[in-house]
Amino acid sequence: MSTATTTARAVTTSTIATGKSKDRNLASLIFLGVLWFSLFFGVVVLLALIIDTAIEGSGRFDHYLFTDYEKSIAHEQAQKFSELRGIPVEDLSNHFTGFRGGILGSLWLMITTALLAIPLGIAAATYLEEFADSSTWYNRMIEVNLQNLAAVPSIIYGMLAAAIMGLMGFQFKGIVIGGAIALALLILPVVIITTREALRAVPQDIRQGSLALGATVWQTTRRQTLPSAIPGIATGTILGLSRAIGEAAPLIMVGLAAVQWDPTGFTSKVEALPMQIFRMASSPQEAVQEAASAGIIVLLAMILGMNAIAIIIRNKFQRSW
């Protein structure tokens, strides 16, 4: 694929640069125009959305956004209570609402999800790629189902996780482990598929060299194939996690609820940032909607940060054979 891209780009560049190529007829110019339009359309819409959201939330980029929990008491009422009850207005008013619950909750959920999904996903992918006989009917069925699972609506994973939590005997399911099971199930197909791609990209020569030196298949996989595939696996996993961090529907389905406390363990009650944004964006109070816009930017920054980590890992460990 990369060869094709390079060629097309080289041709286009030279065409524009020299202006002599026969390719530069009307049809090719129109085609180029369509390509540019498609690119701009996507980027401009995205930029417009982000800028609009950032402007709307611009009044709320203060420390309360990170240090405080959700507050939904209308400001005038909060001022009244504050005077009468001697509570600082910052502790009550929706002008000081924050996403502490959501941010910490999402971080806990991501760590737990990673702990669940990464070992399972890598193990499953390694089996399918290195050990499984893909001519047997059950392995083919697993492969087809994996592709299908990646396209299942996320809310279904929420129902599945709620059922698993029920079987495990948890009465209240809106805890870290409950949300993490839903998100881990959600990203498992993505992790498996990207890990398999990464394993497939490791040249056969390395495996054969190792086997020729007397290593078993297991030793070859553990010492040669898997380490070589780390950049691809890490990238795929982190991209999977950044999908998970933006999910609200499966978490609501599991039963995560608004909390005013920091999570302290795998069985703590939590909520996630996207849930809090979703709830606050539909509030009638303008101050809360404004805070929701600021929260969207925070979530976006978290996702971009995770993607940046993926790129750094890829660049740091990338090898060419």
């Binding site: 959700e70 939904s72 502790d91 009550l92 609501i252 039963g255 909390v259 009650k269 709830r279």
Partner: peptide
């Protein structure tokens, strides 16, 4: 109810602001 959510959530917030350490979690199914 998500309609009643703001009421109950506000009750929890106000109680916490007054110094209570009871952990109230409010869902909206």
């Amino acid at each position: 109810s998500s309609t009643v959510y703001p009421m109950t959530s506000t009750a929890g917030q106000l109680m916490k602001a007054e110094g209570s350490s009871i952990e109230v979690s409010v869902g909206e199914s």
